[in-house]
């Protein structure tokens, strides 16, 4: 005796490959958004973004006629008014150095927050990327569909991109838009584009490195605990060892966090920006000039080629591990 099948039919052509890949990304992000931890991270990331937007907004309004700075010093006496006038004049005369430098500084600082929040979130995400799928034999489910290992991988990569966009790129771009929306001069737009571009370039480099390492680590083991230990070894432990002054540079370059810190210096070029500011701005106080030079020394970075080689080696190793593991078992 057979069962009676009360069932609707679906005989339409399947939706395209992008839809199927997006389904993986959307499901991963939906699962993540259900966790309280990720919602806290989002709150922090957008809080930092808001602070960035407020800083940018205050800076752009500082030179506006009748702006907040002018109003603030209106009753503070002639000396304060003179300082503000001088500052406004410097901004107007050296927009490239001051506006570019200020936004570079803001985005440079934000990159620390963005990277750290992304790394902390990835620590909880890494086991659910590939590890749990392997433990539950979910690869058989994915790959028995009209999907390949590459589609699966792109879907998982999309989840990491989504996390970084929500925690890092989103607040960055939103804060820039807010700053520019109320900027009194076109110079702010023109001279903030380069720092924004550098911030996005570092964001992209971080995305590639973090995505590859996270996916590689996640695919090594089928055990969640083992993956967490591996992530701890690849991130905080390796960074701790790399940060010792006595650690040889080649060994330090095997820490992706250390490499990203080095790359940050090279991309933002804070050393050059601070030195330019110290050299070109007519700063009356020698202390400020010396302070800028000291800061420039502090942010000096190491060998870029070694950093890039280290990152490339880590990315390549992660990809090799990843592709070897992406098969149904």
């Amino acid at each position: 005796m057979d069962a009676t099948l009360d069932l609707s039919r679906w005989r339409e052509a399947p939706l395209g490959l992008m839809h199927r890949r997006w389904a993986i990304v959307a499901a991963g992000l939906r699962q993540l958004l259900r966790t309280k931890f990720f919602r806290i991270m989002l709150f922090l990331a957008w809080g930092v973004g808001l602070a960035l937007a407020v800083s940018g907004f205050l800076f752009t309004q500082s030179i506006a006629t009748g702006g907040w700075l002018e109003s603030f010093v209106a009753d503070k006496g002639a000396r304060a008014q003179a300082i503000v006038s001088a500052f406004t004049a410097i901004v107007l005369v050296y927009p490239d150095v001051v506006i570019g430098g200020m936004f570079s500084m803001l985005y440079w600082l934000h990159s620390y927050a963005g990277l750290m929040l992304s790394l902390i979130t990835l620590s909880t995400l890494v086991p659910s990327l590939v590890t749990r799928d392997r433990a539950c034999n979910a690869l058989s489910i994915y790959l028995s569909r009209p999907l390949t290992s590459l589609d699966y991988l792109l879907g998982k990569l999309g989840i990491i991109v989504g996390v970084l966009v929500l925690l890092w790129t989103g607040p960055l771009v939103a804060s820039w838009l807010v700053s520019m929306a109320f900027a009194p001069e076109a110079d702010f737009f023109t001279h903030s584009l380069e720092p924004l571009g550098r911030a996005l370039l570092f964001n992209l480099a971080g995305l590639v490195a973090l995505a590859c390492v996270a996916l590689g680590v996640s695919s090594i083991s089928r055990s969640t605990k083992a993956t967490i230990f591996l992530w701890i070894g690849a991130w905080p432990l390796a960074f701790f060892i790399a940060s010792f002054p006595t650690t040889p540079e080649w060994l330090s370059s095997l820490s992706f966090h250390w490499d990203l810190n080095q790359l940050r210096g090279s991309i933002f070029q804070m050393e050059r920006i601070l030195t330019d500011a110290a050299d070109s701005l007519p700063l009356v106080d020698r202390g400020i000039t010396e302070g800028l030079r000291h800061m420039a020394d502090d942010v000096r970075t190491g060998d870029l080629a070694l950093t890039l080689s280290g990152l490339a080696a880590l990315v390549a190793t992660s990809l090799v591990v990843l592709f070897r593991r992406l098969r149904p078992e």
């Binding site: 199927r20 499901a27 699962q31 659910s128 799928d133 539950c136 034999n137 489910i141 028995s144 569909r145």
Partner: peptide, 28 residues
Amino acid sequence: GYSPEQDCHIPGMAGCEYVTYCGQLSGM
């Protein structure tokens, strides 16, 4: 369609969500 011998599922999903997701993975 394929129903493997070994226990397999996509972790962290409710049954109906899982089956819906599998449909989407097939292009529905």
